[in-house]
Amino acid sequence: MKIAIEEDKCCGAGPCVLIAPEVFDQREDDGIVFLLEQAPGADLHEQVVEAAEVCPAACIRLDHTT
């Protein structure tokens, strides 16, 4: 799985950081999400999928082909 963030769509709500803190973090100045891990291990896939599903801005893109 590979992850991409559409930063211009991110509203900085942060549920992704709460659900998968090993993968997502937020910039201190504006709260925009950034990736700590672009291709997380299988043990984190469930949390990453949940984070993408609850994102209020729908800015997390997942590629399950890798």
Score class of each variant (00 low, 15 high):
A51M: 14
H45Q: 13
L44G: 05
E50R: 15
V23D: 06
E53F: 07
Q26G: 12
G31H: 06
F34M: 10
G31F: 09
V33R: 00
F24T: 00
L36T: 07
R27I: 03
V23W: 03
F24G: 00
R27M: 12
A42K: 12
D25V: 01
L36P: 08
P56E: 07
D30V: 09
L35K: 09
Q26M: 08
Q38H: 13
L36F: 05
G41A: 08
E50G: 01
E50A: 11
E22P: 07
A42V: 14
V23P: 06
E28H: 05
G41V: 02
L36D: 11
P21G: 07
L44Y: 12
H45L: 04
L44K: 15
E22Q: 12
Q26F: 01
D30S: 05
D43I: 06
L35W: 04
I32V: 14
Q47G: 04
D30Q: 11
P56A: 04
F34C: 05
V33L: 05
E37T: 08
A52W: 02
A51W: 03
L36C: 07
Q26P: 04
Q47I: 00
D30R: 15
L44W: 07
E53R: 15
A52R: 10
Q47R: 10
G41H: 09
F34S: 06
Q38G: 11
E46Q: 15
D30K: 10
Q26N: 05
C55Q: 13
P21K: 06
A51C: 02
V49P: 00
L44C: 00
I32W: 10
V54P: 06
E22V: 02
I32E: 10
Q38A: 15
G41C: 03
P21H: 09
D30M: 10
L36E: 06
V23R: 00
